[in-house]
């Protein structure tokens, strides 16, 4: 997945009625890139089973 740049951050948030400064958009682009880079290690697990858990809490409350 390519990095999400400053202008794309601004455009995406504008579609949610959120106006964001250039400085903030640059920071968000950088933070998002770091998070998504870290998440690439999760792709190693693509072949493993792991059902989305709608509520682990449901499990622990049983």
């Amino acid at each position: 997945m390519p990095d999400i740049g400053r202008d794309e951050v601004k455009a995406t948030l504008a579609a949610m009625d959120i106006a964001i400064s250039d400085d903030d958009a640059t920071a968000v682009s950088r933070i998002l890139a770091e998070i998504l880079a870290d998440m690439r290690k999760l792709d190693e697990l693509a072949s493993e089973e792991g059902e989305p858990s709608p509520g682990f809490a449901v499990e622990v409350r049983r």
Binding site: M1, I4, V9, T12, L13, V28, L32, I35, L36, M39, L42, L45, G50, E51, P52, S53, F56
Partner: peptide, 15 residues
């Protein structure tokens, strides 16, 4: 801004 695909993937890993 979190892509939905990544959110779902995170939930799978949580499981």
């Amino acid at each position: 801004m979190m892509p939905a695909r990544r959110y779902v993937q995170a939930q799978r890993v949580r499981a």
